[in-house]
Amino acid sequence: MNYVFNWTVIEKNIGAMIEALGFGLLMAVVAIAAGSVIGLLLAFLAVSKSKAAKRAVQLFVTIFRNTPILILVFIAYFGLPTIGITLSKVPSFVVTLALYSSAYMEEVFRAGLEAIPKGIIEAGQAIGLTRWTIRVTIELPIMFKKVLPSMGNYLISLFKDTSIASSITVGELTYLSKCLTTQTFRVFEIWLTTGALYVVACYLIAFILRRIEKRFV
């Protein structure tokens, strides 16, 4: 081992790196929030009586869950413009991650909805509640409690997927680090720091999620 560490590049750029991490987090929050809303709508379609709706949701989930996120990002950013759909890189990535996460969230929410005993919903019907009221006041709160732990796992995993945005030069942490390595060649220092920053961020997310879980469960 005769590698001599030199952390000057980190000292100079740590502020920008943290900022870039924050940008990734922001993209993740927006994408996952949108993905959760879409996922929830899909989950309600999946547990509905309509067979066509069920099949459509299944097809959507199969496609988006089984294609690597990198490929989806390429299709959205490089492929879609050829048929006239052009989005700049940040919106393109956020939309892709939102759809990708919605496929995972749909599965989580659907499992949560299916785990609610039928009798509890019947009890809601028996006191004359409408379908919508039952959904909002009974199904959603019970389901969220059930799925909170597995939702947390996906949130962390999806946040890490923002590093994929570097492949279409979105200015988040991984892309910044890539640029810094080509400028300074301090490969090890930069990627170690980058990795550490992701770990700290994910740890903090997990910590906050656990607090939320404790409050609700």
Partner: peptide, 11 residues
């Protein structure tokens, strides 16, 4: 209606 399994809203 009162059910065999009570069916209270657990939350």
């Amino acid at each position: 209606m009162v059910f065999q399994q009570f069916n209270l809203f657990p939350h």
